[in-house]
Write a protein that binds this DNA or RNA. Sequence first.
RNA 1: CGGGACGUAGCACAGCUUGGUAGUGCACUUGCUUCGGGAGCAAGGGGUCGCGCGUUCAAAUCGCGUCGUCCCGACCA
Length: 563
Amino acid sequence: MKLKSSYFFTLRENVKDEDSVSGNLLARSGMIKKNSSGVYMYLPMGYKVLKKIEQIIREEMNKTGAQEVLMPSLIPEEIYEASGRRALIGASMFALKDRFGKPFVLGPTHEELFVMAANHHVKSYKDLPFNLYQFQTKFRDEPRPRFGLIRVREFIMKDAYSFDKDLDGLTLSYQKMYDAYKASFDRMGLNYKIVTADTGVMGGLLSEEFQAVTDIGEDRLVLCDTCEFASNIEVSPCVTHDIPLEPFKDLSELYTPNVGKIKDLVENYQISEDKMTKSMIYMIDKTAVLVMVRADDEINEVKLQKLFGATVVELASAEVVENLSHAKIGYAGPIGINIKIVADHRIRSMSNFLVGANKTDYHFQNVNVDRDFKVTQYADIRNIKPNDECPKCGGKIYFNNGIEIGNTFKLGDKYSKALGLEYLDADNTLHPVIMGSYGIGPGRCLAAIVEQNHDDFGILWPKALAPYTVGLVIINTKIELQNTTGEDLYQQLLQAGVEVLLDDRDERAGVKFNDMDLIGIPLRITIGKTLEQGKVEVKFRNEKEIQLVDLDQVLPFVKNFLK
RNA sequence: CGGGACGUAGCACAGCUUGGUAGUGCACUUGCUUCGGGAGCAAGGGGUCGCGCGUUCAAAUCGCGUCGUCCCGACCA
């Protein structure tokens, strides 16, 4: 492409609206433009990169034998009723009605439609297995879009669905997808971790997330410094060792005026956090439950949800808390409260600790379980922390932040049972089809790649993804020899199948260099004053040094680079 | 959905307190001089000041409403 007479612009300053490095660099380099909150235009260069990402994924999917399809975005709402997900996904769906009043949604995810598609084909075990996938726009009404392309309301997703006759088949299908995902992300040059995760509204037997490691990642990844253990914090188990209790001291009230927060208690009363508990009242499917963890631990709501098999877990409102504890927020505690008490395993080994007194401005100290109150149930309900013991090998835990770029699910028979997708086995009996689902967000990949590959000047695209691999810069378009040489090299490279960008604009050298750096072209060829010696300058985006190359050696040089 | 901030040219912003001619930098057009890491000078083009209603002789400025955007939190596939 020639820049003169092309749709191309860059911005010199950061865009106020973009809060992430990738969002800003992509906007400044003219690759994307925000249209409304969480909704983006992909402009020519950005779209080119997106298409390359898609193509890598497509090739890896096709290698597994999966077949590409395209489902609609406009979907009758009733099909989500049938699977029971209308209520579950609820507020996140963009919903609308047609002219006759029939309710539709803009598809947020497509398990249901793929089950319907499969139903047209599957009668017998001989029709299985197979795998269908698509690249298609998803609509999710996110409460708070942010970080450029990372959390958006409209985005393209590659979603794939495997259909097998049994769990052994699913294991094979799942492994194929897992390997294809690894191959795809490796080709994109991403630094990523694979972690076990919560199955969320997808449900099913297993979920693993492919997480690009970056500072702005919204997920916390739990990793071990000695073994392969990797988990999303949502589901990472914690190891608790019981320790002997101390001799009980006498229970007493402690007057703590206006000190309801843990931090203030530590500061004002010199009580260490491992001698305190945090008591929070949760509404678990509309039932109030007191949840206790040690003061320096965090409550893990996903674990609570699984423990109760619940749909909705949320903190109780201030009103409910004050009614149940007969005190202002901050003073709820287990003694004398009349609801179920769930405590983390760690509470079992605590003695002579501090709890809220269910009385404004008071705490109890020297509290002991069983003597002073009963715990209904002990469970693992806290978040694991850095330096904790690895649940798998005992090694030391550390954290990374991650962007979820892919997710694989072993769904089992959840959707096939709900929607009646069955096959007839060799012994003439009906069985539900066993499914898996697999998603990749190409837009998130794009953003994650920029997060992982940039410097002060702009983006550094990996060769395989750059919108153009070679950038030809004509320093002075008023010098005819530079123009003709540029045009000649441009044609040579084009004919050799190289994706080349020719900067033939009447701009100053600095502008051209900065633009090439900003948009991240991996190899820059400069046609300038060394032309008098029959040479051009060659510079890699990720290196400082400039090399001189004879004009007739340019093509071999580029070909060698592309190998 | 709670708390906070903001909406003025393509981008970043000033002007608003104290109502009276629409401003700056970058970008854009033309000319001259420059020309190897975001040039200089000069002359220009581009705005229903988010939208609506109100107050007023007069509203970017004051009031009410509304829509939108961003941040923190809640939520999150």
